[in-house]
Simulated scan of single mutants.
Amino acid sequence: MPDSELHSLRVDRERKLIDLRLKAMLSPEDAAWIGEELRAAVRDFGPEVGQHVTLYDASSIPVVPQATAELIINTFNNEAVRPLWARKVAFVVVTALARLQVQRLREVRPDIGIFGDREEAIAWLLEE
Rank of each mutant, 00 (worst) to 15 (best):
M1L: 12
P2E: 14
D3N: 14
E5Q: 11
L6T: 05
H7V: 05
H7W: 12
S8W: 05
S8M: 08
S8P: 05
S8D: 08
L9I: 06
R10H: 13
R10S: 10
D12N: 15
R15V: 08
K23M: 08
A24V: 02
M25Y: 10
L26T: 00
P28W: 03
E29W: 12
E29V: 13
E29H: 14
D30N: 14
A31Y: 12
W33G: 03
E37N: 08
E37M: 11
L38W: 09
L38K: 07
L38N: 07
R39P: 04
A40P: 11
A41H: 11
R43H: 13
D44E: 15
G46N: 15
G46S: 15
G46I: 14
P47N: 10
V49E: 10
V49N: 02
V49S: 08
V49Y: 07
G50F: 09
Q51P: 02
Q51A: 12
Q51F: 09
H52T: 02
H52L: 06
V53R: 13
T54I: 15
T54G: 05
L55P: 01
L55E: 03
S60N: 14
S60M: 12
S60K: 13
I61G: 04
T68I: 04
A69G: 08
A69Y: 03
I72M: 14
I72S: 04
I73T: 10
N74G: 10
N74R: 14
N74I: 01
F76R: 09
N78L: 06
A80P: 00
A80W: 01
R82F: 11
L84T: 05
L84E: 09
A86F: 05
R87V: 01
F91R: 08
A96P: 04
A96H: 06
R99M: 06
R99F: 07
Q103A: 12
Q103D: 05
L105F: 14
E107Q: 13
P110H: 02
D111F: 00
G113L: 00
F115D: 00
D117E: 14
R118K: 07
E119Y: 00
E120L: 11
A121P: 01
I122G: 01
A123P: 01
A123T: 11
L126T: 00
E127L: 05
E127H: 10
